[in-house]
């Protein structure tokens, strides 16, 4: 175990996988000489050379199409899209090609590539650099979407994503890169995709959160303890495939559910969670499921306005109090 920042954990995962498998290579904007805007790829060009760590021009369309094609030829590209806000530029390659090729070619083609990107608000980055487009990506069958929140998961899940034979969208969060945590140094350490993690056990309500919202949910759970409410916090980690069993197991015990996602409310990932819970756990529910999300509006640049609209511990606590009432 070593204490590491989230960005360092990702860096370690990339290094270990590149050392272990010569077909793993990286490309993206400013990932080589500059080491990445968030320093995730720092030092890798020096270690693995310009062929395996490539700086690309600014064209997400071309980059993603390249990743799809490279994966088809048997390599394992890891593509960095600097902001999740730019992922829509790559959707044709992602949705019209990557997600369906294995199916339409009857399994003769595999798509082992990873699209790393980072989203979310809270950094004063404005409406065009703060979006969470989780549901837009998780909507598509044939693509896995994961969003680790701890440095250990960042490392373990990125390694699993690189080894996976399906396209994996790997969602990071700009406010997580500097968070610290214990990370196993073992090169064999991986975290399976598709499994949720219970971050805190509780009796009265289950809070299901994604990405940075897990940290807000944990803060809310601390506050709720003073309100006399015991909240369970589940880190979903994998948005697709979703660990429905863990969700159902938790609700069977607490009978109350609050779902938290930083994306928009309407047609959002929280809506999918609510519907899944309704389908699967209806007779275990003692109250309607509550959603805590970004309101249906752009993320404001102004800091007070941004804080006012982003979901946070206070809003999660309010939702829990409403649900257990």
């Amino acid at each position: 175990m070593a204490m590491m920042r989230y960005a360092e954990a990702l860096n370690a995962a990339l290094r270990e996988e590149m050392q272990a498998d010569a077909s793993v290579f990286l490309f993206g904007e400013d990932i080589g000489r500059y080491g990445g805007v968030f320093k995730v790829t720092k030092g890798l060009m020096e270690e693995f050379g310009e062929l395996r760590v490539r700086d690309t021009p600014i064209s997400e369309q071309a980059m993603t199409a390249m990743a799809v094609t490279a994966a088809m030829t048997g390599t394992r590209p890891v593509l960095e899209i600097m902001y999740a806000d730019f992922v829509p530029l790559s959707l044709d390659a992602l949705i019209n090609q990557a997600s369906i090729y294995e199916y339409i070619w009857n399994g003769q083609v595999r798509m082992p590539f990873v699209l790393r990107t980072q989203g979310g608000g809270g950094a004063g980055a404005g409406a065009q650099h703060s979006k969470s487009l989780d549901s837009m990506l998780a909507h598509v069958p044939g693509i896995k979407v994961v969003a680790p929140v701890t440095p250990a998961d960042a490392k373990g899940m990125l390694k699993s994503a690189i080894r996976d034979s399906q396209p994996v969208v790997f969602l990071e969060h700009k406010l997580l890169y500097n968070t610290r945590g214990e990370v196993p140094e073992d090169a064999d350490f991986t975290v399976p995709l598709g499994k949720a993690a219970t971050r805190r056990e509780g009796r009265d309500v289950s809070i299901f959160a994604t990405s940075r919202m897990v940290l807000e949910a944990l803060k809310a759970a601390d506050a709720l303890e003073k309100d006399g409410i015991s909240a369970e916090v589940i880190d979903l980690r994998s948005l697709r495939p979703l660990d429905v069993e863990s969700i159902a197991t938790s609700i069977a015990r607490t009978n109350h559910a609050v779902v938290v996602n930083e994306g928009w409310n309407f047609c959002g990932y929280a809506a999918e969670l609510s519907a899944t819970i309704m389908d699967r756990c209806f007779d275990d529910l003692d109250a309607p499921v509550a959603r805590v999300t970004l309101p249906d509006m752009p993320v404001p640049y102004s800091e007070p306005l941004e804080m006012a609209v982003l979901p946070d511990a206070g809003k999660i606590r309010d939702a829990v109090l409403r649900v257990v009432k």
Partner: peptide, 14 residues
Amino acid sequence: PRRARAIASPLARR
């Protein structure tokens, strides 16, 4: 003897 459908959570109903 009769009244309008009770308002109850799914869990309470079960």
